[in-house]
Design a protein around this nucleic acid. Structure first.
Lengths: 170, 170
DNA sequence: CAAAATATGTCAGTACTGTTGACATATTTT
DNA sequence: AAAATATGTCAACAGTACTGACATATTTTG
């Protein structure tokens, strides 16, 4: 195997760290944390022939039953063509049902079935367990910081959407 | 458009919240936060014809110059076939160079070029800015909690890898 | 009422990132 | 000399996203 280039591209041998005050530690931690956060449901979904996109749809339909297709697209920030396949599979598998909108009959309201509710809970369980364990490691008084931090990481325009979802006390 | 099924799949009309003590709030916040966290570099990468996978390779090669291919695969947890395309493109574009390993000549040590270093920094900058702003919103004393929480979210077996990366004080 | 706008669905093509399986080459270890 | 290792490469496939175009039903507007 020959060396791929000899166009005198000089290799840099020093590790980048803290340059321009860039927070590489948190950047990496966020990557690793999210990867492992999604790994448990990913494994479960594989048994159903579903992927991460199915999980997200199932999650938000369970969190806000009666959601219209347009509202779901707005939350997920994907195109309707992307949603279509995933949603169709969830409907065909009996996890989600569509009802014609009562006010506007063009709309399709999305509801979970008992099966869809059960799957959503099963997928959320290991994620919640992981979060709970991490909070205990950190100290329970850290929760407010963590919630505040994550919310502050979200684009300001979108925070309204988050507040529109059901809260813990409901 | 007919209703897709009439197999008497009963819709559930109540939102799921706090069931089985599941922490839906943090699950969702983590999803939204990560999505927006990756959106800035994603946009920049599109200009180069690169994707998120290129970003990750570039990041870790910059964080640990001299990394071998096997070490990189171990960090990213992908197959070598997945890495191959992405790595080849980065090498061809002059962001990364490969040097034959000094001890073991089968190995290929990966180093960033000046161009690769510059791109890595440019991609990290908006992410770090977002993190910095979020920390300020939260209060600076929350940083330890957030770092601890994110690290605790990572699978224990993999935390050693994280500790092996350069720290801020180096 | 007719026309325009809206909500949804669908077809076709493409890109990126990941997978598995198989096999080749160079090098090191046994 | 044989086996193991590090890397590279070819082929096929899957999941999730994208764009563009067009169809249908329904509501809103002029």
């Amino acid at each position: 195997m020959p060396d791929r280039k000899n166009t005198s591209e000089t290799p840099i041998r020093t590790a980048v760290a803290n340059e321009d005050g860039i927070d590489f530690v948190l950047i990496e931690l966020f990557f690793f944390a999210y990867r492992d956060f999604t790994s448990d449901p990913d494994q479960m979904l594989a048994h159903y022939g579903f992927g991460r996109a199915h999980h997200r749809v199932l999650h938000f339909v369970n969190r806000g039953p009666g959601l219209t297709v347009a509202e779901l697209l707005d939350v997920l920030k994907i195109t309707k063509q992307s949603l279509a396949r995933v949603l169709k599979q969830l409907i065909d598998a009996g996890h989600i049902v569509q009802l014609q909108g009562p006010r506007d009959r063009r709309q399709r309201e999305l509801y979970p079935t008992a099966k869809g509710r059960a799957l959503a809970l099963a997928l959320a369980r290991p994620q919640s367990r992981r979060i709970h364990a991490a909070l205990q490691d950190t100290g329970a008084e850290g929760r407010a910081f963590i919630e505040g931090f994550l919310k502050a990481m979200v684009n300001p325009e979108l925070r309204a959407q988050i507040d529109a979802l059901p809260k813990a006390q409901e």
